Simulated assay, not measured.
Amino acid sequence: MTEPLRVLVADDEPLAAERVALLLDRIDGVNLVGTAGDGEAAVRMTEALSPDLVMLDIAMPGLDGIEVARALSSIAQPPAVIFVTAFDQFAVAAFEVAAVDYLMKPVDPARLALAIDRARAYLRQRADEDASPTVEAEGRYLEEFWASDLSGLVRVAARDIDRVSAERDYMRLHVGARSWLIHHSMAALEEGLDPKLFVRLHRSAIVRRDFITGFSRNPSGRWIARLADGEEQPVGRLYADQVRAMAGR
């Protein structure tokens, strides 16, 4: 039997927190493990209770919801995060911290059920990634990623990624003019992406090989990769051998 989804609700408005709690009680397989009245309490209770999902208001005293999400991302096994707010102007910031979903108050029961399903899918994917054999043992590489955007979860095929750039504890996947944040380390992506298709050029950058159109040197002698979208990617000194190998030198 599937384990219940353990949920913590954080909202400084008691009536709003109570409404969410009542709606959660109607959803099968969901256990409310606690409620927090401010951001600092949300962080403390998450560390103490280890919920699978934290439902965060954004406008809270002390730490706001965005700051709480950033703090939670640094713990060993961070929970999934869903924002519940009366303000729609924070949506972009919410997904920059890899929120699973973004709900507007008053919360619609059907919309909440969909958000819970998305949280379950996110947690299943993360568990599968953690439990999967190493690339060397399995002889295969990552083929897809699931990332959050305003519509929910989006599948991003690995072969479509032009480049990956690091942003603090998150990695941004660039595909054409669009990009998505995922919670991975650069080292894990370097190991998981097929080296026949991708090359690491910097401690904070991985680029698809056929997205590189050429190399040049700047006045200090440092290699610069020219990319198909017109951008340039500096090559870290530790990765200069990658350039020479690609150029057959």
Results as ranks from 00 to 15, higher is better:
residue 33 V to Q: 02
residue 80 A to W: 01
residue 204 S to Y: 03
residue 56 L to A: 06
residue 90 F to G: 13
residue 28 D to H: 03
residue 235 V to L: 05
residue 225 A to D: 04
residue 113 A to D: 13
residue 189 L to Q: 07
residue 114 L to F: 07
residue 39 G to R: 04
residue 70 R to K: 12
residue 78 P to A: 11
residue 239 Y to A: 04
residue 185 S to E: 02
residue 205 A to P: 02
residue 33 V to A: 02
residue 182 I to M: 08
residue 226 R to H: 10
residue 192 G to E: 14
residue 88 D to M: 10
residue 241 D to L: 08
residue 51 P to H: 01
residue 24 L to I: 00
residue 189 L to M: 11
residue 66 I to F: 05
residue 189 L to A: 09
residue 161 I to R: 03
residue 91 A to F: 11
residue 10 A to Q: 00
residue 133 P to R: 09
residue 23 L to N: 11
residue 217 R to I: 12
residue 83 F to P: 03
residue 82 I to G: 01
residue 168 R to I: 05
residue 148 S to G: 14
residue 13 E to S: 11
residue 239 Y to R: 08
residue 172 R to C: 12
residue 47 E to C: 08
residue 147 A to H: 09
residue 151 S to C: 07
residue 231 E to C: 00
residue 86 A to E: 00
residue 102 Y to Q: 09
residue 167 E to R: 09
residue 24 L to Y: 06
residue 122 Y to H: 13
residue 38 D to S: 04
residue 193 L to P: 03
residue 167 E to Q: 14
residue 142 L to H: 10
residue 117 D to I: 13
residue 188 A to G: 14
residue 132 S to A: 14
residue 117 D to R: 15
residue 182 I to N: 10
residue 33 V to R: 01
residue 95 F to V: 04
residue 169 D to S: 10
residue 27 I to N: 07
residue 69 A to K: 04
residue 236 G to D: 07
residue 191 E to D: 13
residue 142 L to E: 15
residue 212 I to V: 10
residue 195 P to T: 15
residue 111 R to T: 15
residue 37 G to H: 11
residue 139 G to Y: 09
residue 237 R to T: 13
residue 110 A to S: 14
residue 42 A to S: 03
residue 8 L to I: 10
residue 240 A to G: 10
residue 188 A to T: 11
residue 125 Q to L: 12
residue 94 A to K: 04
residue 74 S to T: 12
residue 185 S to H: 00
residue 12 D to A: 02
